[in-house]
Design a protein around this nucleic acid. Structure first.
Lengths: 236, 236
DNA sequence: TGATTTTTTTCTGTATACAAGTTGTATTTA
DNA sequence: TAAATACAACTTGTATACAGAAAAAAATCA
């Protein structure tokens, strides 16, 4: 049971989280208990406990007598996401500035270094995971148990939305990512200075950047699309 | 396995939820797997799955190789609660007004009837549970998967805080409960009228009433506290 | 051939047995 | 007596076997 500090259960949990966040496991995908049981050397009992926990965190959907599924992403969820994200992100960053500990600030800087490395040489998945980790740390900093469940739920789908819409390697996107990185630095500075107003403002800016990037791909070149528009066209 | 529509698992889940919300199971209380297993005629495997789910919803805390515990309520959580509740409640009620279906409005009216019945003849626990159900329905109405996790987490502790601070049967409290009931009616009206601005305002009013009631017992007779001024003074 | 029913197979849900870990108690030692 | 250690009782974690439900495949009938 004590494998090497990290139990097989933890490894399975991490594997599923990463696979889901990077869309390696697609929304709606079925998970086979027997396969995973084999692959991770775990019996079905602990495996199903991991499923239940991940379902609670919003990674999976469980239906009785049916296989576990990666939680869905629909048009509706995107709309709900746009509605909830600015509010929660602002509140979390404001609280992060007020409550961050030195150890957490060190974590945040480390996360930002990883993010910058991923920008230089990493894959889209690496970027998404590193960005996800950065924001997870801000959540830990806020330390508010009532806001965290929603915040973490948002982060899951933000990563997945990012994987969807940040994929094409346009010049506009490189520029956006560079700005995002600068905003991360500014966020770190605001938190270190305990400047909660600045942190809240940066949350808004950071969100707007992300939102614009998403809209760029949801509404390609947003110009007079006829009727029955093509699913997606690549912007310049 | 198919007992009578409601499985033994569901019954256990409901029992634990009610016990925790009404403080019949106190924050920090240890849960014995063998006892519950006996009492509900369930083996430990499904029982532990229920534990994991309830932990995900914020009812329980799980620690490896130690017994499951009812989630704690500390001074800190109360502070975090006061911070997060107004924001989330407002957003939920606003969305509820915009998205409620006729069936959900019927549910809400039924919940309010139960609440009024509990006010007349019920115990403190009955009132807390009926009030909890009323607000749960507003959460369902909002239909926003990103806000619901935090909202439901807040509702758990709101019920528990209510059980703590609404206990003494003063005249002030009866008056407050009567006002709360009237606010519920107004909330129903605003939702039926799809008036989201009114719903948001009512959320604020309803929250303020609840907050004042809590403060009444946290700071009894809150008169000119000398040094270290009180965190907030009661509005007119 | 095509639709429908029956049978087979596969997968999920639960019970139970056992392994590993924790806590409390008794015993030893200084 | 106080601290430390060893032992015993108990509790949690995991594997496995089996029961029940859903899905897939085969067989039947029009």
């Amino acid at each position: 049971m004590k494998d090497d500090a990290k139990s097989r259960k933890d490894r399975l949990r991490d594997h599923l989280k990463v696979s889901i966040l990077t869309l390696s496991l697609r929304p709606g995908a079925d998970l086979d208990e027997a396969d995973l049981s084999d692959a991770f050397g775990l019996s079905r009992t602990p495996l199903r406990e991991v499923f239940r926990q991940l379902a609670g965190e919003g990674y999976l959907d469980l239906r009785t007598n049916r296989s576990a599924r990666v939680s869905e992403m629909s048009y509706t969820t995107l709309r709900d996401f746009f509605l909830a994200a600015p509010m929660i992100y602002g509140a979390i960053l404001r609280l992060a500035a007020l409550n961050a500990t030195p150890a957490q600030i060190a974590d945040l800087k480390a996360a930002q270094e990883t993010f910058k490395a991923a920008l230089r040489s990493g894959s889209g998945a690496d970027r998404a995971l590193a960005n996800n980790r950065f924001h997870e740390v801000t959540g830990e900093m806020s330390g508010n148990v009532y806001l965290l469940p929603s915040f973490n739920r948002l982060l899951i789908d933000h990563a997945r939305i990012g994987m969807t819409f940040y994929r094409p390697q346009g010049a506009q996107m490189s520029e956006n990512l560079s700005v995002a990185s600068q905003q991360h630095e500014a966020i770190i500075a605001a938190i270190e200075a305990r400047d909660d107003a600045a942190a809240a403002q940066l949350a808004e800016d950071h969100w707007n950047l992300s939102r614009d990037q998403i809209e760029l791909f949801v509404m390609p070149d947003a110009l007079d699309v006829p009727m029955g528009a093509p699913p997606r066209s690549k912007p310049a």
